[in-house]
Design a protein around this nucleic acid. Sequence first.
DNA 1: TTAAATTATCATAGCGATGTGATAATTACT
DNA 2: AGTAATTATCACATCGCTATGATAATTTAA
Lengths: 145, 145
Amino acid sequence: MLSQTAEYALRTVLYLAAEKQDTLFRVSEIAEDLDVPRNYLSKTLHQLAKAGILTSSRGKHGGFRLTKAPSRITLAEVVAPFNGPTGARICLLGRTACSDSDPCPAHGKWKRVSGEVSTFFRETTVGDLLEGPAARVPRKRAGAR
Amino acid sequence: MLSQTAEYALRTVLYLAAEKQDTLFRVSEIAEDLDVPRNYLSKTLHQLAKAGILTSSRGKHGGFRLTKAPSRITLAEVVAPFNGPTGARICLLGRTACSDSDPCPAHGKWKRVSGEVSTFFRETTVGDLLEGPAARVPRKRAGAR
DNA sequence: TTAAATTATCATAGCGATGTGATAATTACT
DNA sequence: AGTAATTATCACATCGCTATGATAATTTAA
């Protein structure tokens, strides 16, 4: 559903949302806890920072933190920089033009379903997910593999 | 939403469903009408034949046709050989284990939406789409590009 | 000023999805 | 038998996503 990169981004944002938001977290710290390739995550977080979702600090004692409160970050925002299918590609058959007035054969039935997916990403916030179970990812035990 | 290949497959099945089902259609014919790479489509149709959705005939006067009636072919069947997200990947966060009893933070809210997508593919048939508008793709004019 | 720690950036590799071209296998027709 | 038409298969090219490693830039602190 989501690209690997978008999934990393979402997991990181959720991770930061579950922790204290006024402290900085290092990439190496996040990467290890989430079991994600470190250098790759570094670039992904940089993209999230460019998108205004994270704030980065360089140098010693640098790191990343959320820019906004979790309840004000939608999943669509998080996923958007990584081609998340949050509603852009509506037409199931790949038509460049597919609308109510110029519909493809699947338009009528697919519109409702794709609309629900789109709505989910647009209206669900990171804060909403925090209310769910197991929001806090347990830290890996040292040496665990 | 769908991979390019799955989209080609679906469009081809829809194309064949809209035509007479007892006649054979050549790959070159389909590829031109749908504006899809010919040799690539050839392999895709071969996969659909292996999946039992199409029947292929080799040699002169060969081609492809639907094996079953359109109303008995679900979209999930068509898309399945091409990694269609018809419900396999349920967990939004990529957890290998994510269920009601061991849920990820997004499980509760995402389950409903992903379930609707899955249901759409499982319960919608090619015949259902034929009832929609513009099921018949207009043939391209000769020389049109 | 120097060293250490950290993000930013660059170069490149691996891999699967997508696409192209050529050849083999099969069938129909003469 | 031979030829043409068509699918089946093989070999390879291309491209973007994913990933790795190295270096640059920045900041803190001694």
